[in-house]
Design a protein around this nucleic acid. Sequence first.
DNA 1: TACGGCTTGTTCAAATTTGAACTAACCACT
DNA 2: AGTGGTTAGTTCAAATTTGAACAAGCCGTA
Lengths: 167, 167
Amino acid sequence: MSETRWLSESEMAMWVAYLSATHLLERRIEDQLKVDSGLTHAQYEILARLSEHPDARLRMTELARRLIISKSGLTYQIGQLERRGLVTRTTCPSDERGVFAVLTEEGSRCLERTAPEHVAVVRAFLIDRLTPEEVETMRRIMTKAVAAMEAAPAGPLRSSPPGKSPG
Amino acid sequence: MSETRWLSESEMAMWVAYLSATHLLERRIEDQLKVDSGLTHAQYEILARLSEHPDARLRMTELARRLIISKSGLTYQIGQLERRGLVTRTTCPSDERGVFAVLTEEGSRCLERTAPEHVAVVRAFLIDRLTPEEVETMRRIMTKAVAAMEAAPAGPLRSSPPGKSPG
DNA sequence: TACGGCTTGTTCAAATTTGAACTAACCACT
DNA sequence: AGTGGTTAGTTCAAATTTGAACAAGCCGTA
């Protein structure tokens, strides 16, 4: 194994600030959503993703994949949303195993009612504090990171493809 | 109330990528830490913050504030770490109520043993994919966001200070 | 010294999240 | 049709996280 490359002062400052910002923002978002609509952030994201799609429906696995949450976690949250009448489950015609999560009319209204305040929080603490160039840089950075993680297989990091360990 | 300023395409792309990257990275970090040391990310951060300080100790409330977790959450995690012998509790001499979380020798060794792989993950999926300029921009962005959220009081957003509502 | 008002840390119940185990269904190939 | 290997979604137990309630200690002021 190679010697550890520790983080530089600048890198460390970035990483610590990133962690803090993420947690602080998450807390602000949760607080706002709870007060204004009784939704959690996870639930809001489910409604938002569904609303972006034709027929406002998505298969469970696909939705979980996009939200980066576990399948069981999604099952739980869809249950909560269903209980509140914001989402319905529909079996998939072409695949007997499949389940569509479908946004209801009321779910759509709830989302429309909640979105403005939610967007306001994201703007107030992040987006409106950035220059257009910073928004663009951040978009590029995050998109790169997502691509890297979606491409890389799970498990230990390798500098070379699996099975090529020197011996 | 003013009309909602929705996110532009670029802003939305940034926000969605940010959420995905955050969750994906968190998952990668959790997986690596679990495999290599049996620690959670929260626990690792506790050890890391303690190690940065003289005497490797911090008061509970201060530690919770820095990590952006609840006091009860910290109580729980310190309990876990104490059970594993990585941390000890010490009462504060100058304040009978106070409790210091103290990194033990074993905790220190655990951290040293674990840190290289942890840093490797953060590098592999984020830092090493950024140019020095991007690191700097990201540091600036995140630092700004943290400052904004630490300064702003909890509760609904206001464009003007409290008590100044027009009427 | 005694008295409110805060602050500290813990306990507790409730909500959420995850991975493992499981059932059912799909699919390629015989 | 039958078989083995995969995928979809749920159920379950265990771990974690939070806010509210609480007991104890601090502190300025009467």
